[in-house]
Structure formats: structure tokens, C-alpha cells
Design a protein around this nucleic acid. Structure first.
Lengths: 247, 247
DNA sequence: TTATAATGTGTCATATGTACACAATAGAAT
DNA sequence: ATTCTATTGTGTACATATGACACATTATAA
């Protein structure tokens, strides 16, 4: 009846140097930037497609991964301006002389794109380019380069979704290592909520939930009192009524 | 490359007799129950498709309408059991002797279905069946009949979404008439959150936000003090930092 | 005129939020 | 060794929010 092409685009976020960073791909053709994405195959669920695409690009077998929105603007082709189309057409002659890939179609068609939010630990990823992708970069979400299509809007929606979701569950922990400092924990919340929080009140509030395990101190952090390391008590959290850690 | 069939399913909710009700369709064929839904056309956005389907079924030109999830389980065909398929096959001979509609395919294929939540005023809707639909009913969301495919899960996800969304914005007002009683307002929140709230504290909390306009009293409500009517002050709400009305 | 029942507002104990103060301490500086 | 420094952990005091309930108000029914 009405046939559509469905893709999945992954907004892969990591917490690095105190800021939220998103994994972006720089294309060989035209130096376009995009999110990691790909087709949804015939008998594949969206979740499976997203997991496959994430795994292919980052090497991660398990990671926080959640659908947040499906984008469908009929004008949302990845490349739209006539100038860009001709640039791409030219460059494609090198990469695909026989035109087997139908690459132009691919870049200029409208797709239904389902966005997935993934939260990862930067250190656990092994990102890799491929024959279409020149390089992979972790970019501060507040300093995005011009992205193809509506990918900038997709990133924005993903961050907005994260901001809401973090009130209902401690998913932010997916961004931190197994053992972390209270300072890191706080900075992670501050980066996501784009606000500053009172250090001592934050600490008291989080600890009162009783779902963090206090471990040994981390020494050699400088000429001052050494902070404790903490980890998340999954069991204790599951036992309680699930909720967010802030407000 | 990979072609899919995309549909939109609308979870249309109304507040009636103190409970949340969802608009369900009873099919002529097989007496199946389903949500109102339909195809996404070639150059149509999902939002447009949802608005079209809602308008066709309820007559509503404007209504609260928001996408909440895309369902894609490969096994999510509307009719799956062999028994149901044969029942439908038989009954289809009457409705569609020449097989023009491809109705069996339609019921047994997997679709990508994007769920939309709509909040309406029951009194403003004019629901209408059609040549495939026997009748339309408003059903208590906590007392659903067996629905085709995963439509029960879609309703559940929609209500869950509403429960979260209502914390961020006063969308619940879309369920109430222009002027309403504080009691209705409270019952609406209670129905959505599935909890009971203290009457006097609720009233004080809501009024403190200063976004309700107090009008005349509603007389003839019974042998007791008459309550005020209220309406929502959109301007004042827009001027403030947008947020939910409950904590 | 009185009774009734739902409504609007008051009160108080408790919990939570917020802004600081202050003490503790690991390592650097002397 | 001793002192200094910067960060961390905890304390305190005040404002505000929440929750449970009391009480006064009042439109209609009896």
C-alpha cells in the first residue's frame, strides 16, 4: 500500500571532562557530519536494529539504549540543498563509479527515522570508521558542528529526553565507571540538567537514598582530604520503589 | 532496500464519570477490538497522519496530540492465531468477495506502528464507525476488552507516558471543559495518577500556582455550599517558567 | 427555620530545601 | 616535622513545602 524506508539513528552520549559528548561521524563524501544510523531490516525490531548499529560502531555489546522519538518530516532528507547534492554527486563518482550503491537516492530521500538514546562509558568504546565514514568524534553536545538533515534536532530531542528521564531513574550511572566519586556524580547531573547544584546538599540528598555503597578513599588526588569512592547498589535500588535520585 | 509498512495508532483518552476512558473500535469482522489507526501515506508526516486519523474518527480538528512510542515487534501482527486467521478469512468473503482489499494480508502482516496520545473532551467528539468498523466505544482504561495485536500494550504505554508528562505540563486540562470545578480537576489527576489526593491540600497547592482564574459559583449542585468554577490562565502560565502543577 | 453535606480556609507537626559554617585530612610547601 | 592548602564530610539554622485534620461557610433539602 504505502511503503516507507525506516532507519534508526543513535544518539550515543558519554560523560567526559565534565561535559556531555555525543558520538558523531564525519563522512568521506562532502565532509558531512551525521549520527551513527542505519536501515531497519525486514524482520528486525527497532530495538534490535539500534543495538546492532550501536554495536557495529562502538563495539559495545551491552549498553543503555532507549527509543525516544520517531522523526518523519517529509523534508528531512539528509542532503537537501541543490549545491550539496551536486557536490555529493561529483564525489560519489570516485567512491561508486558504477552507481551500485544508489547513494544519491539514499541521501536525498525522506526516511522515517527512529531516534535511540544510548548512554555509554567513553573508555569502554572502540569506535571505528568504515568505507563511507572518514572518522568518528566525541563532540560536546553544546558545540555541535552543522549536521546533515535534522540530526541536530535529533540530538536536542535526545538530550531533552534524558533530562526528563533522569528524574525517574538513575540512568546517569551508565555514564560513570563502576566506582566513582561524589564529585563526578554531581558533575554528571549538572552537565545533564545544565545547572549547578550545592555540593553539600547534593551529597546528603543522594546518600539519604541509601543506594550507594561507600568504598575505600581515593588517595593521591591532591593536597587535601581524600574523597570516598562509591558504587551503585543495584539490589537495594530494585528492592525499593523505583524512582529518581533528584527531587 | 528494506521497505516497511508504517501505521499510526491513536490512544484517544477522555475523562468521563471520574475515570479515564479510551476510544476503541469494534470490528465487523470477527468482533475484534482495536485502537483507531491507519496508514501513513507516502509524503505524509506521522503527526499529519495521526491528526488525519483522529479527525476522521472523532471529528476533532484541534486536539492535544503527541507521539509517544513506535512499536516494531516483528510478531506484532494484529491477528496471529491460526484460528482467528481462518475466522477472519471466512468472514471476509462476505465483505470483500473479490479480495480487492487485501484484508487478510493487512491483518496478518507486521507493521511499524507509531503510537499517538490524544486528550479530548468527550462531549466535543462525534465518533463514527465505517464500513469495516461496527461501533465505537469509550472504555475505562482499567477494564479493557481483549484487543488485537499489542494494542493493550500500546494503551498501557500511553497511560504511562501521560503519567510522566503530566508532571511537566498541565496537559490534563485538555480533558476538562473550559470551566471546571476544583473537584473535577482533582479527580482528573487522581484518575491519571491512580492515587487519592487530600482535597484541601490539593486545592491550596493548585491555587498557589496562580494560573487558575476563579469565576462565579456553580449553583444548584446540591444541598451544600456551592463551589467556584475555574478556568486556566494560558497567558499567565506562558509567562512563568513552564512546569507541572503537581510537585 | 433547621439540617445537611460539600466547600474554602486555618492550623500545626513534620519533612524537605537552601545557604552557609566548620571541622577533617592527604598531600604540598616550608 | 611542622605548617599550609584545598577539598571533602558533616552540622546548623532558617525558609518553605507537605500532610493530616479541624473548623467555619453556605446553597439547597427537609
Amino acid at each position: 500500500m504505502f511503503l516507507h524506508e525506516n532507519v534508526v539513528d543513535c544518539v550515543v552520549l558519554a560523560f567526559d571532562e565534565g561535559v556531555l559528548k555525543v558520538l558523531l561521524l564525519k563522512w568521506k563524501v562532502g565532509s558531512f557530519w551525521s549520527l551513527p544510523g542505519g536501515y531497519v531490516m525486514s524482520q528486525e525490531s527497532l530495538d534490535d536494529a539500534a543495538a546492532r548499529i550501536l554495536a557495529d560502531r562502538t563495539g559495545l555489546g551491552e549498553a543503555y539504549l532507549e527509543q525516544f522519538h520517531t522523526f518523519s518530516d517529509p523534508t528531512r532528507a539528509f542532503v537537501s540543498s541543490p549545491k550539496d547534492v551536486s557536490t555529493v554527486t561529483e564525489m560519489m563518482k570516485e567512491l561508486d563509479p558504477k552507481g551500485d550503491l544508489g547513494f544519491i537516492d539514499w541521501l536525498t530521500k525522506r526516511f522515517l527515522s527512529t531516534g535511540y538514546l544510548s548512554l555509554v562509558r567513553l573508555s569502554e568504546t572502540k569506535v571505528s570508521p568504515d568505507f563511507l565514514i572518514d572518522s568518528c568524534h566525541w563532540i560536546d553536545v553544546t558545540k555541535l558542528p552543522p549536521l546533515g538533515g535534522d540530526h541536530d534536532r535529533i540530538v536536542g530531542t535526545a538530550v531533552e529526553h534524558l533530562r526528563k528521564a533522569i528524574r525517574y531513574s538513575p540512568i546517569g550511572l551508565s555514564l560513570l565507571p563502576e566506582r566513582f566519586l561524589m564529585k563526578d556524580f554531581q558533575q554528571m547531573y549538572e552537565a545533564i540538567l545544565d545547572t549547578s547544584l550545592d555540593r553539600s546538599n547534593f551529597q546528603r540528598k543522594i546518600l539519604k537514598h541509601n543506594i550507594l555503597i561507600r568504598h575505600e578513599k581515593r588517595m593521591s588526588g591532591g593536597a587535601h582530604r581524600a574523597p570516598y569512592l562509591y558504587s551503585f547498589d543495584h539490589q537495594r535500588y530494585s528492592a525499593k520503589a523505583r524512582s529518581g535520585l533528584l527531587s
